[in-house]
């Protein structure tokens, strides 16, 4: 029982990370049809700069952590918005080229991160409470899992509120359905593009700081490795669906944890098999709209 609880909550924590990456990917894809390979780099730069700030403030205090998270989100948002504005926009409606540009950006940026911060992992110091455990139903749960889950839920709520109650949220929702008709109502949908990139980048940058707490370090490849699972999550959840991304994040991460524990560390393979199964049974994903 305690093992199951541990696996479930750890899975939820990992799912929270997946969601922070996948939510942006899904929104961007839904609105613009862009598969963003550079999204992992938004996460990595958010993590690096977030921790640079935290380290200068104080090692391991709560307010340094909060500063790191805010910085990570802001940096992620700025880098993402700049990417949209300077690279993606020039290739409007040329989806393959847009993917290629993000691929180039991903390769170049990871190399640059290695140049700046080295190829070895940079270890981070977070508040000591996060390194301790709390006992729930006999399971000793690392405390940082709770924070991951809490932050991801807050981000989910914030994105839903934005989509539901702001004019730009309305534009984004309408644009996901029918982008051309939005422009035919006299709305410059490109501003929504930049905004969606910024939101996705903020979530990813925040996710970067949290991911480095989860793993205990930052490295130039931290974003890239999470990105692949985030891709799988967005396909399983249904491209362009935020709810799908949230549900699939949890399912994928929990499945991964259980397979890792009970099936001899085969979590990654189980996830790929799950992806194959979903595609065979439901090519549009769990919550995907019509192509």
């Amino acid at each position: 029982m305690s093992t199951i609880v541990l696996l479930l909550i750890t899975g939820l924590g990992l799912g929270a990370l997946y969601f922070l990456v996948a939510s942006g990917l899904s929104l961007i894809y839904g609105l613009m049809g862009v598969l963003n390979f550079a999204h992992g780099s938004f996460l990595t730069i958010g993590a690096f700069i977030g921790w640079e700030v935290a380290r200068r403030l104080s090692d391991g205090s709560w307010w340094a952590l909060v500063a790191a998270m805010l910085t990570g989100a802001v940096v992620g948002a700025l880098v993402a918005a700049a990417t949209e504005f300077f690279l993606i926009r020039r290739l409007y409606n040329r989806h393959i080229e847009q993917v290629l540009v993000t691929v180039g950006l991903a390769l170049a940026s990871v190399a640059l991160f290695e140049g700046i911060w080295g190829t070895d992992p940079t270890y981070v110091t977070s508040p000591s409470w996060l390194g301790q455990t709390t006992e729930i139903l006999g399971a000793r749960i690392p405390n940082n899992r709770f924070m991951l889950i809490l932050v991801a839920v807050l981000v989910l709520v914030a994105i839903v509120l934005f989509l539901k109650f702001t004019r730009y949220g309305l534009i984004v929702r309408a644009g996901v359905e029918n982008r051309l008709m939005v422009t035919a109502l006299g709305i410059d949908v490109r501003r929504a593009f930049t905004l969606v990139f910024a939101i996705g980048g903020a979530a990813a940058g925040l996710g970067g700081v949290l991911a480095s707490i989860y793993y205990g370090y930052v490295s130039a490849h931290i974003g890239g490795s999470l990105l692949i699972f985030a891709f799988i999550v967005t396909v399983i959840g249904g491209l362009g669906s935020l709810a799908g991304a949230a549900i699939a994040s949890v399912l994928v991460a929990v499945l991964q944890q259980f397979a890792n524990f009970y099936l001899g560390g085969t979590g990654d393979l189980a996830v790929v098999l799950a992806l194959a199964a979903v595609l065979l049974l439901r090519p549009r994903g769990l919550m995907g709209a019509k192509a």
Binding site: L87, R90, L91, E97, L100, V101, V103, G104, L105, A106, L107, A108, S109, V110, A111, L112, E114, G115, I116
Partner: peptide
């Protein structure tokens, strides 16, 4: 020094320029 000592950075940037 940092960007120039990373071949993948240069190649990636070159690639972006080619695509654009």
């Amino acid at each position: 020094r940092i960007p120039l000592s990373q071949p993948l950075f240069i190649l990636g940037t070159l690639f972006i320029l080619v695509v654009l």
